[in-house]
Deep mutational scan, measured.
Amino acid sequence: AVCQRCQARFSPAERIVNSNGELYHEHCFVCAQCFRPFPEGLFYEFEGRKYCEHDFQML
């Protein structure tokens, strides 16, 4: 399997985020606008991209 964002493979010891069947490295699972991790894992999706609450409100 490969990361949805960076397309790199996962190492066996690595923590992986699964979002609706899409797999991400922990450091790749970030807001599409500000590139920060999601507070408490909370995000909003718009047109296939994931956003933090602040950036989602700015759309």
Rank of each mutant, 00 (worst) to 15 (best):
A1G: 08
V2K: 13
V2D: 09
C3E: 03
C3M: 01
C3V: 00
C3T: 00
Q4T: 13
Q4S: 13
Q4A: 03
R5F: 04
R5H: 14
R5A: 15
C6R: 02
C6I: 00
C6L: 00
C6Y: 01
Q7G: 13
Q7K: 01
Q7H: 12
Q7F: 10
Q7S: 10
A8M: 15
A8I: 14
A8W: 14
A8D: 09
R9A: 09
F10E: 02
F10Y: 04
F10C: 08
S11G: 12
S11A: 15
S11Y: 07
S11F: 06
S11L: 11
P12L: 10
P12G: 11
P12F: 11
A13Q: 06
A13I: 02
A13K: 13
A13G: 07
E14G: 11
E14R: 02
E14N: 04
E14V: 07
R15Q: 11
R15D: 12
R15W: 02
R15A: 07
V17E: 06
V17N: 08
N18F: 14
N18K: 03
S19A: 09
S19F: 06
S19Q: 10
N20M: 08
N20D: 15
N20K: 15
G21A: 11
G21C: 03
G21H: 07
G21E: 13
E22I: 08
E22D: 02
E22R: 15
E22H: 14
E22P: 04
E22M: 09
L23K: 12
L23F: 10
L23Q: 15
Y24W: 09
Y24E: 05
Y24A: 05
H25D: 00
H25R: 01
H25E: 01
H25S: 00
E26W: 02
E26M: 06
E26T: 08
E26K: 09
H27F: 07
H27Y: 12
C28N: 00
C28P: 00
C28F: 00
C28Q: 01
C28M: 03
F29Y: 07
F29C: 12
F29W: 12
F29P: 13
F29H: 13
V30L: 11
V30C: 09
V30G: 06
V30W: 03
C31P: 00
C31G: 01
A32P: 02
Q33G: 08
Q33C: 08
C34R: 02
F35A: 14
F35H: 15
F35G: 15
F35D: 15
R36M: 11
R36C: 11
P37I: 06
F38E: 03
F38M: 06
F38T: 09
F38R: 02
P39Y: 04
P39M: 08
P39A: 10
P39N: 07
E40L: 10
E40S: 11
E40K: 11
E40Y: 07
G41Y: 03
G41Q: 14
G41H: 04
G41M: 05
G41W: 06
G41D: 09
L42N: 12
L42Y: 02
L42A: 13
L42G: 09
L42P: 04
F43P: 11
F43T: 12
Y44E: 10
Y44F: 12
Y44Q: 11
Y44A: 04
F46A: 11
F46N: 07
F46E: 05
E47Q: 07
E47C: 06
G48I: 01
R49G: 06
R49S: 12
R49L: 07
K50I: 07
K50A: 07
K50Y: 09
K50W: 07
Y51Q: 01
Y51M: 14
Y51F: 11
Y51E: 02
C52D: 02
E53P: 04
E53H: 14
E53Q: 07
E53F: 10
E53M: 05
H54R: 14
H54S: 14
H54I: 15
H54T: 15
D55C: 13
D55S: 02
D55G: 02
D55Y: 01
D55W: 01
F56P: 02
F56N: 13
Q57V: 08
Q57M: 11
Q57S: 08
Q57G: 14
M58E: 13
M58L: 13
M58Y: 05
